[in-house]
Amino acid sequence: MSHVLTVAGKEFHCYFKTPVGSIFLFFFLLLCGLFFFFVPDYFSLGEASLRRFFDLLPWVYLFFAPAVAMKMWAEERKIGTIETLLTRPVADHRIVLGKFLASFGLLVVALALTAPIPLLVAFTAASPVDVGPVLTGYLGAALLGAVYIAISLFASALTESQIVAFILGLVLCFFFFVIGLPDVVGIFPRALAEFLTDLSLGGHFANIQRGVVDTRDLLYYATMLTVFLLLNVLAVRRRA
C-alpha cells in the first residue's frame, strides 16, 4: 500500500509543481459554471434544480479525464523513465493504482470545487433543496469520473504521444457514455438496446442521480474500474 501512495503522492505533486493541474481545474470549473449558469440562462429558468448540473458533468468529464490522465504513461514512455519505474521492486499493478489515485484525486478536487454551485442553488431556491439527491449525485459523479479516469489511463498506456492518448481516451469515454443515451439506443433492436444501456456509463449514472444507490450500479462501476485498470496493467507489461 505504501508503494501505491508513494506513486500517487509523486504524481499528484507533479500536477501542482507545474501550472498544468491548476489549468485543468480552472477549465473544468469554467465549463461547469458556463454551461450551468448561462447555457441556457439559469437565472431566467426560474427553477432551482441541480439536475442539469449532474447532466452536464459527463460531458465535461469527456475532456477533463483524458486531459489529466494523458501524461501518466505516454510521458514515461516518451522520456524513458518507464524503464526506471518498472525496474524498481514494485509490482506493476501498484504503480497503475498509484497513478489512478493521483488522477482520481485531481478529479475529486475538481468536484469539491464545484460546491458553490449547489450552495448557490440552495440559497436561491424558493423551496428547500433536498440534500439526499445532491449527495448521491456527487457520489455518482465521483464513481463515473473514476471510470472515465481508468479508461483514459489505459489509453495513455497504449502510446508515447500525449495527444494520441488524449484523443484515444476521449473516443473511448465517449463511446461508453454515448451507447446508453436514449437517442442512440433507439436505433437498435430492443434486446441489443437493453444490453447497451446496461453497458453504458450514462445509464447507471442516471439511476444514481435520481437518488437511488443500487448495488447493481455500484457493482457496474466497480467492474468497469477493475476491467480498465487490469487492461492498463496489461498495456504496461507490453514493453518495447
Binding site: 509523486k10 507533479c14 509543481k17 522520456i79 524513458g80 523513465t81 524503464e83 526506471t84 525496474t87
Partner: peptide, 15 residues
Amino acid sequence: RLGYLPESAPLYEEL
C-alpha cells in the same frame, strides 16, 4: 539488489 541506470539517464523534468 539491482541499481539500473538506463541509457541517457531519464528523469522527471518537473521534479
